[in-house]
């Protein structure tokens, strides 16, 4: 479904991605783990059109998408839940969802239906629908950001560190949501620093280090990998990572 082939991305003269390749098949959850500054966000931004690759190709549903603007890529069926959630904080919860469905604005019935579905899944959003989104708690904002992304009815959902800055209990809740999305048969690319939790839910995983994929494999297999254990699950890994 998604095929990324030796993509290079620069910020000025910082070489943030040095030939990254990966793929996601339909119905899979694939996770990308790596330390701070490894280039995870750069990779998802390159996939979603927020950053332009200087070399390499990205194919989605058999069409080239590299270098297209984000407005076009979301229409092709990739939705991103960006790092730090990036909700429309000065707008109401309901307006946030409405904006998520912007590309389907010609079909208000469908948008309404989707909105009601997410209100059903996350009753807290329904309770708070008239409230400014910036007043929600971190976990609620993350639920809103995920719902907003799903409002575009994507084929592929990309989550960039959904557990960032959340308390352990809330992190666990977010992973429960991801597991649920998996059961619905959605295709997900999950970026996480929380390697253990991510590899547990994922079918496959990639490990990114300073702009390169250094390891890839099945989720459980990577979980047992000596290198991964040393670098991401070892002594340094804190308790709060245990979701």
């Amino acid at each position: 479904m998604l095929v990324v082939k030796s993509v290079h991305t620069y910020y000025g003269n910082i070489h943030a991605l040095k030939g990254v390749s990966l793929h996601v098949r339909k119905g899979e959850i694939v996770t990308l783990v790596g330390a701070n500054g490894a280039g995870k966000s750069t990779l998802v931004n390159t996939i979603c059109g927020m950053a332009k690759p200087s070399r390499g190709s990205i194919e989605f549903n058999d069409r080239a998408i590299e270098g297209l603007p984000p407005e076009t890529i979301v229409r092709r069926g990739i939705a991103l839940v960006p790092e730090g959630r990036q909700i429309f904080s000065a707008m109401s919860v309901e307006a946030n969802l409405l904006m998520g469905g912007y590309i389907h604005r010609k079909n208000p019935g469908q948008v309404r239906e989707d909105m009601d579905r997410f209100y059903g899944i996350f009753p807290i959003l329904k309770q708070r629908k008239g409230q400014l989104a910036g007043t929600l708690s971190g976990g609620e904002q993350q639920m809103l950001a995920i719902s907003r992304a799903l409002m575009s009815r994507p084929d592929l959902l990309v989550l960039d560190e959904p557990s960032m800055g959340l308390a352990p209990l809330v992190t666990r809740e977010i992973f429960a949501i991801i597991r649920e999305l998996k059961e619905q048969g959605r295709t997900i690319l999950l970026i996480e620093q929380n390697a253990r939790a991510a590899l547990k839910v994922a079918d496959r995983g990639y490990v990114l280090e300073i702009g390169k994929v250094i390891l890839e494999g099945e989720g459980p297999e990577l979980l047992e990998h000596r290198e991964v254990k040393r670098a991401y699950l070892g002594k340094g890994a804190k308790q709060i990572w245990e979701a």
Partner: peptide, 24 residues
């Protein structure tokens, strides 16, 4: 209007607006 709301969304967070498919 959805377009009025989309304008406010651009004002509030232009990157998120583009990711939602709003032509900023």
């Amino acid at each position: 209007s959805i377009y009025g709301q989309a304008m406010l969304a651009c004002a509030n967070n232009p990157d998120a607006a583009r990711l939602a498919g709003i032509p900023v």
